[in-house]
């Protein structure tokens, strides 16, 4: 059963809806004891980095998540802010991140975006896959996803990069390492392109 982590940061119902449509059972919970029984985890999230970390701490979820992800190697999919939280920290705030992967999160470089491109990066965009992956499925066809973000991931370990996206410049739009996956875009809002990712994750 897939546990969708409810920590008061963002839209989680749509993730549950998509998994249900694909025929996979999932549950939404912010309780430690319930999430301890999940065989896969999804960390969603919208909003401020510090707010997200504080919410995880205040619900006493961080130690349990660390145990499950780093020791038991349970697959975890971070989405949007949930992906950004996987690294060490973010320019958006002062809180330390979960620190499971060697990455930081930076603001879009306004100088490189130019006049035309607005922040947040909101709308549909393409991905270029950087390495072979079960979750992305190594497909050749053009794939587009829905993005809403003002900050993006910047891996310090270059092998983390799973795919990149161009918005003014190329940035890393998903990362992966062992059982940890983080996507900046919203698969739960990206039609069949997102459904494939959710299905691949559910079948890991």
């Amino acid at each position: 059963m897939i546990g969708i982590i409810d920590y008061g940061a963002g839209n989680i119902r749509s993730i549950h809806n998509m998994l249900k449509r694909l025929g996979f059972d999932s549950f939404i919970s912010g309780k430690k004891e319930e999430l301890e029984s999940a065989d896969k985890l999804i960390l969603p999230g919208v909003g401020h980095f510090d707010h997200g970390m504080k919410q995880l701490h205040s619900r006493n979820l961080t130690a349990m998540l660390h145990q499950r992800v780093m020791e038991e190697k349970v697959p975890i999919l971070g989405i949007c802010l949930g992906a950004q939280l996987l690294g060490q920290g973010s320019e958006e705030g002062n809180e330390a991140g979960l620190g499971w992967v060697d990455m930081k999160v930076v603001a879009f470089d306004k100088k490189k975006l130019g006049q035309e491109l607005k922040i947040p990066h909101m709308g549909w965009n393409y991905i270029q896959q950087l390495k072979s992956s079960k979750i992305l499925g190594d497909e050749k066809e053009e794939r587009r996803f829905y993005f809403v973000h003002s900050y993006h991931m910047l891996p310090l370990d270059p092998s983390l990069g799973l795919c990149s996206t161009k918005y003014g410049y190329e940035f890393i739009s998903a990362i992966s390492k062992d059982n940890i996956i983080g996507v900046q875009f919203h698969p739960e809002k990206s039609h069949q392109f997102g459904m494939k990712i959710m299905k691949n994750f559910a079948q890991l």
Partner: peptide, 9 residues
């Protein structure tokens, strides 16, 4: 309606 919407809504 939302339960059927797999796009931004």
């Amino acid at each position: 309606i939302c339960g059927e919407a797999f796009m931004p809504f």
